[in-house]
Amino acid sequence: MLQEENIYNLIPREEVKPPKPARYTSKFKQMAREERQEGKSGYKTMGQAKVPVPTTDNFLKKHSKEPKLPPREHVFAGEPFTYPDADRRRPPVPHKEDKPLMGLRTTKNFITNNAVGNIMSVPKKPDKNFVDTRGGDKWPLDPSGLEPKFIHKKDFGQTPGYLVKRNKEVIRAQEEYEAYIAEHFRRGAMKQLSEAERQVILAGLKANWEEIHHQYQGLSVVTDTVPKKNRKERMEAEMKQLERDIETIEKHKVIYIAN
């Protein structure tokens, strides 16, 4: 709320107009008038009252009214003028009065040569143009893109060489990377039992079992003492263990050995 409303503001007031300020008059008015008058009065007469008499040493001199050019800085007095590219220029055409070197003169008939050259020359092909409107401007056809140019290129539609090269590089990098990863895994992985080692272990285990089985078969029929019983039980347990090991190794073709 900018200004709070109040009932007393509704009372219509007579608008009191502030008295107009006095009209502006410059305080320099008098001065300006005097100055203007002063400046004028000198020319209002038949000239200045007293003109200074010209002195004898202040006579009019030759070229004194010509504009004075600034001095040329890079040109030194006495040196001949040289162009800035003088060292790159070819030697001038020999003068007609110069003597030929060693008195050698060419026998070539330039006029005939030029004529023959012109006659034999292939005529210039007309420019390929197109005209945009009837009676309109003509424009070179070649850069306009109206003529099929690129489809006639030899390698049109082929993968550009740089892309082929790049793709090859990508594939090679991928392979290298995979090889590296495989190597890395291989290095960190557990040792695998080879097929031969496995067969050896298997054969060993079976031999052991055969031997224990043979002894087992040779046990007495009656197990009447504790040592007998113990022996029989031990042998049974060993055989059982061996059977279990054989089964495990036979069951799994690939066997890793934990570190």
């Binding site: 109040n6 009932i7 503001n9």
Partner: peptide, 25 residues
């Protein structure tokens, strides 16, 4: 009724409400 500071008008209406209004607007 007008408030003495003139800030509002209070009015009693037949719908059982007392309404207040700003005096100027």
């Amino acid at each position: 009724a007008f408030s003495r500071d003139g800030k509002y008008i209070a009015s009693a209406w037949s719908d059982a409400s007392v309404r207040f209004f700003l005096p100027e607007s």
